[in-house]
Amino acid sequence: MKRMSVSQIFLLAVLVFLLALTGIWAVTAWNSAGDIQMSKHGWIALGLGTFFSLLIGCGLMALMFYSNRSGHDDKADPFRKGPQPPFT
């Protein structure tokens, strides 16, 4: 297994810090709402919005993978026909 370089460790630390900062912000924003109650229609809208966002996201990802596997991307980009450089 390859060891992580100093720049990769720094990047990982910054990303973990941003994740923690986002979590703290989310908890603070949630608690600042106080005693505000969401109606039944609000919960329905939140649930439907979440469901359809996930449905569209998963559908687009599935179409992207299908397009890549079926060769449609190769037909659309004629400049990729040359030899591919090796991965390092």
Rank of each mutant, 00 (worst) to 15 (best):
F51S: 02
A26Q: 07
D77F: 10
G49A: 02
L54N: 14
M64W: 11
W43G: 02
L55K: 00
C58Y: 10
A20C: 12
L15F: 12
V27Q: 00
G59N: 00
T88M: 12
A26W: 10
T22D: 06
L11E: 13
N68C: 09
M38Y: 15
G59E: 04
A45H: 11
K81N: 11
T22K: 10
L55A: 09
L19A: 15
L12H: 07
G42A: 12
G34T: 06
D74L: 11
S32N: 02
R3Q: 10
L55M: 04
F87M: 11
M1R: 05
H72Y: 10
G23F: 10
K75H: 07
D35F: 07
A33I: 08
G82Q: 08
K75W: 06
P83M: 10
M61W: 13
K81G: 14
G23Y: 07
F17T: 12
K81R: 12
A29K: 10
K40C: 05
W43C: 07
S32D: 06
P83W: 12
L15A: 15
T28M: 14
L54Q: 10
M1Q: 05
L12I: 04
C58T: 09
S70C: 12
P85A: 00
S70A: 06
M1P: 00
P83C: 07
D73F: 10
G49H: 06
